[in-house]
Design a protein around this nucleic acid. Structure first.
Lengths: 203, 203
DNA sequence: TTTTTTTCATAATGACCGTTATTAAACCGG
DNA sequence: CCGGTTTAATAACGGTCATTATGAAAAAAA
């Protein structure tokens, strides 16, 4: 019983996501969000809660809709393929939409006021979760001989993530897809090799 | 003629720099800045102009006081030493001060409101200037045989800068100096070599 | 000492921030 | 068709934003 919603909650969340993606958490005003969603202010509040809750929902939606390439990558057979898949798809995502370049995990908040500290920390945790998955995958690669025993899985994971973060900054600065692809190519040329990937000489 | 200034302009600028470094441009309120400088609001305005002008002065001071390692690096004999010097010193700068980790060039603004667009662009130009210097240095390295003819100077420069940007994000997220040093080691592990650096076999 | 000039401190400005009362409209069950 | 319930729209809330008017205090020039 009661009146129906006259707007699509999913579409409103997508619109909010795009605003946050472009302007970050603190850079996005509630006016920006309501205008993008085509919805009055109290409607957004009743549907999602306050601005912080809306951002967290947008971040979850971002992960679901745009980061599918990460679980995809983790299932590839070699560590190098995992890294390549992540880097190549990150470049694609960072440059695919001209009106919101870069990555929400970075654009959302790097530094900010004390009020934004909970959101900043949420993004830190968000990025750390991805990095931990990558580290575990590289640990496995060591046991499988796909990475040398001397490789540091945590350093490799941090290296790949540092590149994605840095390229996200560069994409937000207007770098072309081609330039970032060249960066990825450069990064992958320094990839360590294990007993089975240097050449086709092992069993 | 007239009354003397009762505060040290240089110290006030340093204080403002620290605030911007920690909270970024939009995250720093004028109240934050005046409290850190120990100076009333109109005094900051009369000394530096508005917030944007103050930020630009702080950025210039940041460059002078903390980025001396970049011109230093450019004078080193090999491209690899140039890259190593930049990356190692960037890690040091990003982790040296626990209350303002990361780098002003990134923390200052990655994304933000439309009002902050001029500052965001100024930071883009600031970073681009460093990258251009690096690219030119790598071009020279190619003519000197220090980098192979096949090396792409612009991609290498963008690669090194992407790493510094990404590590700045990670430092701001609380990454330890040791972790970032391991990232640098990974990045440098297979630097491309020219005719004189692979081993000591050339003339 | 008086005048002029600059800085100082207090406090006010209008605008925008995120968040909500409030009231009218729309829907469902009875 | 009417009572109960949910949403919609308008407008207001206190607080903070960057910026500045104002007048007192201080120092050099006359």
């Amino acid at each position: 019983m009661g009146r129906h919603r006259e707007f699509d909650v999913e579409k409103a969340l997508d619109a909010a996501l795009c605003v946050f993606w472009r302007k970050g958490y603190e850079g996005s005003s509630y006016t920006d969000l309501t205008e993008a969603a085509g919805v009055e202010r109290p409607a957004l509040y009743s549907a999602f809660g306050n601005k912080e809750a809306l951002f967290r929902l947008a971040l979850a939606r971002y992960s679901e809709r745009f980061l599918h390439y990460i679980p995809e990558a983790l299932q590839l057979p070699t560590a190098r393929q995992v890294a390549a898949h992540i880097l190549v798809n990150a470049v694609d995502l960072n440059t695919r939409y001209p009106d919101h370049t870069g990555c929400l995990g970075i654009n959302g908040a790097v530094a900010g006021s004390d009020d934004a500290e909970p959101v900043r920390q949420a993004l830190i945790d968000f990025r750390a979760a991805g990095q931990a998955q990558l580290r575990e995958r590289f640990e496995r690669a060591k046991t499988e001989g796909d990475l040398p025993e001397t490789a540091k899985a945590d350093a490799l994971a941090a290296f790949v993530m540092a590149l994605t973060h840095g390229m996200a900054v560069q994409a937000k600065a207007g770098f072309s897809r081609e330039m970032l692809e060249a960066v990825v190519e450069q990064a992958l040329s320094t990839w360590p090799t294990g007993r089975s990937t240097l050449s086709e000489t092992s069993s």
